[in-house]
Write a protein that binds this DNA or RNA. Structure first.
Lengths: 216, 216
DNA sequence: TGAAGATCTGAATCCTGATTCACTGTTCGA
DNA sequence: TCGAACAGTGAATCAGGATTCAGATCTTCA
């Protein structure tokens, strides 16, 4: 025996894997999944194309992991907001505002995660995580029904509507086309006006009391 | 001169073009845009691959036209429902129910038009038609604000939310995954429960009076 | 240190499906 | 009916990006 997988090696492997994922995320945040090619990724990570295949079985798996990690951050962050102080209506408002704000501040990434055309495997992840979002809304709505904030008969479908409302109301403003418009100096909706309209829309849709609709 | 484009020829060209588009629509309705390849289309239309290029400059243009035509039918149909008798709240309910029902009855096509990953050119059409839908909602909301049915401060953003709600609430039930579930006999939401929850969601979201929420 | 084994490299290859084009078949008007 | 121009054919080509693999290089430990 003249070679053995040593501690140091394992660590460097792990570190390099993270480095690759970091570079990949950077590329996606910069130009969407369309900009994520094995060649450009290898170059930006400073390794050879073939080496990527020691760390990932193929492009699809790599892209899925980038998607999954980035999305988990958002889900966890929404979960925290939904679990904060106050009644369900307040927590809903807080969560939605936070979600929209985060998306607004990294538009290309948000667009890539929510709406960009992607390979089938990544799209399947989207579906999975769409359900994860729906699950968060489901819980919040259930709590709101209990604490008197909301009055929702069909919780699963309503949760899906919420996911749709939030996601798609942002697709417009986040889309490359809209960003091009904005860049060209044409007038466009501000983050504040979008979030306040979105919040009102959602609170009303869930049957929240009028008194909860006011902004604060 | 020994050849001139004759009347009969023009008509046959036109007819063949329609025939091709019909076959293409059929393929999309059957297996989504993924199933639309130039080779299979040529075969199903009974002509050679190369001949397709006499009728369309390329695949993208062909796919766009399929998308556009199919979508226009839906838009026109929604427009009619929104312009029917009654106050805005009734017309909204009618339109949404009709839209959901039509989608439900041709799921694969609806999914292809709303959510399937497609080539960039077709996706650009989607964006354009998303705006067309938003325009319909914008008008209806404006009328509803006027006739006392609704009470919406920010109409453009709210219209986008409506597009999102309707579209995405159907993506789940329409997606191949959900259809697989359904096929495997697991319990799933019925059209009726989806539409009634969706209608309530939308009416509330627009600030309709309680009395308009009841089903009829 | 050196041999065994692991890893890295990147140009060549493969894959998939759109697109082309040399050739054959059709249509038109005289 | 003929020849000029157009239309149809489908196998061959192309495109672009993922994947492979035959060396080259690096690591480990007796």
């Amino acid at each position: 025996m003249a070679y053995r997988t040593t501690e140091a090696r394992l660590e460097r492997d792990q570190a390099l894997r993270e480095h690759i994922l970091g570079c990949a995320l950077h590329q996606v945040a910069d130009g969407g999944f369309a900009a994520l090619t094995m060649n450009s990724l290898a170059e930006s990570a400073g390794i050879a194309t073939g080496s990527l295949y020691r760390y990932f079985p193929g492009k699809a798996a790599l892209a899925c992991e980038v998607f999954t990690r980035a999305t988990r951050v958002e889900i966890d962050s929404l979960k925290v907001a939904f679990a904060s102080q106050g009644d369900a209506a307040h927590r809903l408002r807080r969560g939605i505002t936070q979600f929209a704000t985060r998306a607004w501040h990294s538009r290309q990434l948000a667009y890539a995660l929510i709406a960009e055309p992607v390979e089938a495997e990544v799209d399947a992840q989207r579906l999975r995580y769409r359900e994860a979002y729906a699950e968060l809304f489901t819980r919040l709505i259930r709590e709101g029904n209990a604490d008197g904030s909301f009055n929702v008969p069909n919780i699963p479908v309503t949760a899906a509507c919420m996911v749709g409302t939030v996601a798609e109301s942002l697709i417009g403003p986040l889309s490359p086309q809209a960003r091009a418009l904005r860049a060209s100096g044409l007038p466009s909706e501000s983050l504040e006006s979008v979030t306040s309209a979105l919040t009102l829309f959602c609170l009303r849709a869930l049957g929240a009391k009028e008194s909860d609709h006011a902004n604060h």
